[in-house]
């Protein structure tokens, strides 16, 4: 029975991260000696320390009573996490206007309190605002309308 789920999860995460760095060094980088330190020396030491700290956190968690995770904003993680990705996919082919509009719209879907109409209006308003501020105000050199949409403007 896990008495302290948060500590256990944190510990496992740090162990995994520490091992990742150690193994990566082991297979790809030279460790070297203290005098001739290779690119792997410092990271493999840190990786080992991190994994040990992870173990200690789990160990400590076995003797303490923790609080449960509570609710997780799954919808938030999905849509908020998607927003920058959508921006990154859209900005080159479709341009800045579409990137801002689509990523804002997707982001606002993660809230349970804003409806579709509100999200659309918000995205529209923000797009206009951002284009005015960033493209005309600060003069960012990015295409407002990307090559895939050039036909619209003729």
């Amino acid at each position: 029975m896990i008495s302290n789920p948060k500590d256990t999860a944190a510990g496992l995460f740090f162990i995994a991260a520490g091992l990742f760095f150690c193994l990566n060094v082991w297979f790809n980088l030279q460790v070297g000696t203290a005098l001739r330190m290779g690119p792997g020396y410092f990271p493999i030491a840190l990786g080992a320390i991190l994994a040990l700290l992870g173990l200690a956190i789990i160990f400590k968690g076995m003797f303490t009573q923790g609080t449960p995770f509570g609710s997780v904003a799954i919808r938030g993680v999905v849509f908020v996490g998607l927003a920058p990705l959508i921006f990154s996919v859209v900005v080159l082919p479709l341009g800045l206007v579409a990137a801002i509009f689509l990523s804002t719209f997707v982001a606002s879907l993660s809230s349970q309190r804003s409806g579709i109409v509100f999200s659309l209006l918000l995205s529209l308003g923000l797009t206009i605002f951002c284009v005015l501020v960033f493209s005309y105000g600060l003069g960012l050199p990015y295409k407002l309308v990307g090559p895939w949409l050039q036909w619209i403007g003729g």
């Binding site: 920058p84 921006f87 900005v91 801002i100 804003s114 923000l126």
Partner: peptide, 18 residues
């Protein structure tokens, strides 16, 4: 807040991309 955070995200995305 539901009007705020999409704006924060949009500004951050543009800023980081820029």
């Amino acid at each position: 807040y539901y009007a705020l955070f999409p704006a924060i995200l949009a500004f951050s995305s543009i800023g980081i991309y820029s």
